[in-house]
Design a protein around this nucleic acid. Structure first.
Lengths: 232, 232
DNA sequence: CGAGTACTTGATCGTGATCAACGGGTGTGG
DNA sequence: CCACACCCGTTGATCACGATCAAGTACTCG
């Protein structure tokens, strides 16, 4: 298989780390990389295990989770196409990475990838910027987890998802409708709540006329201003 | 003032970013850096304001906090000597950085510092590693904030502080005694609790004979095994 | 000595977890 | 084709943890 052709065709070519490379550099990268497919539910990295691989997400979605010894779980990051997966410069991964949808990754062994980073300053700078952005997001989420109420968490989550999702509207200013990519349990894991609390908050918003739930995973935002008020 | 001499004398010379530089490079760095002193309570960066400065902490301690619009606050990071402060590659700081003790920083304007980073790959790699480490810590803390009980948070906090603090023991295996560098309110901010809950958890541990509180900010760990059990 | 700050303790309240039951949709095997 | 199991989501009842409100103590500083 001609991998360099694959790189040229890559769906995240201009958004991921590789976007900083010229054609020659890309050849070098494609020599150490390979595509791998993970079905929904499959685990890419295990918490506490040696993390010998890293890579870029091409399609699908991943979650990164942390767990207590007795099994309580918290999602600490959600990864979308073009996001980088893994932890250069550390032997072990402290978190578990799992596919929440069928996903394709472009993966590299960590050692040669680190070596490549050293020789491509632009790529390293891009990775540094991505790491700082992830750090800002993670810290913002700490505020939500520790200090916001369940109502605020769910309202904020819906606004975030509406931003990210493909939204359809019956008129340009009309109510926005979109599909949630995850189920109630995964929302609870993300917000530090239980399934029951997420469900109750959604029905509360529905009864208040702020959202509608035309399908089990479909959300219509009928009153965005109120939703923003409730997001705190 | 001969700044290069100051660099040579710097207390964090071998632990911070600058540790990667040779004498010539250090001269270049010292030309754009200057020392600044902040008294306890002073603010180094304001959330939402342009962040034109970054730097290394030389002595003292800082906290980084996030706040909701209505004033609820959460400490998202604690910074100690040799830690890097600021956010390269972004116009604004999303968090407020405050001195929790009288502190000295070695500060740089962001633009020339970024320029310097580009020309010193080792320093950039060191910063990348620090950013990934901070990211791991932040994500581990998300689990604590979202899923651990007040008792687990306080027990875990005491173990962390004992690791970091200068501990004195009456005998090599005897109980460890150390001073907390922060007051109850700051512990509460860090753990996502209230002052009252922190205080109650400490007295509960005292009544159980697991710790002693010889002074208001002094902790003696009398039964580390039990404390670890309670940390979950 | 009085004011102010930090901490502790007590009483009560409310949010969200927990336990439990039930409904709807889907896929499987007899 | 239908009976059944299973998963997911909703709803109800109750409980417990930690927040809130309130009072009081110990220490420091002017």
């Amino acid at each position: 298989m001609d991998i360099s052709k694959t790189c040229a065709d890559c769906s995240v070519r201009n958004r991921s780390l590789c976007g900083t490379l010229d054609d020659g550099e890309l050849q070098a990268l494609s020599r150490i990389g390979h595509r791998r497919h993970f079905t929904r539910g499959a685990t890419i990295l295990w918490s506490g295990e040696p993390a010998t691989q890293c890579g870029n997400l091409l399609s699908g979605a991943l979650k990164m989770t942390a767990s207590t010894a007795d099994g309580r779980e918290q999602t600490v990051s959600t990864l979308y196409p073009a996001d980088f997966v893994g932890r250069p410069y550390a032997e072990d991964s402290r978190f578990t990475v799992t596919a929440t949808a069928d996903s394709e990754l472009c993966m590299f062994a960590r050692a040669p990838f680190e070596h490549l980073l050293e020789r491509h300053a632009k790529m390293e700078r891009q990775l540094l910027d991505q790491a700082f952005t992830a750090l800002d997001e993670s810290r913002a989420q700490m505020l939500t987890l520790a200090r916001r109420s369940a109502a605020e968490k769910v309202a904020g989550f819906l606004l975030d998802m509406a931003d990210r999702a493909e939204v359809t509207r019956i008129s340009p200013t009309g109510p926005a409708t979109f599909d949630l990519p995850i189920n109630r349990g995964q929302i609870a894991d993300l917000l530090g709540l239980t399934i029951e609390t997420v469900s109750r908050q959604l029905t509360k918003l529905k009864l208040a006329g702020i959202i509608a739930l035309p399908g089990i995973r479909t959300i219509t935002i009928r009153d965005e201003a109120s939703l923003r008020t409730r997001a705190g």
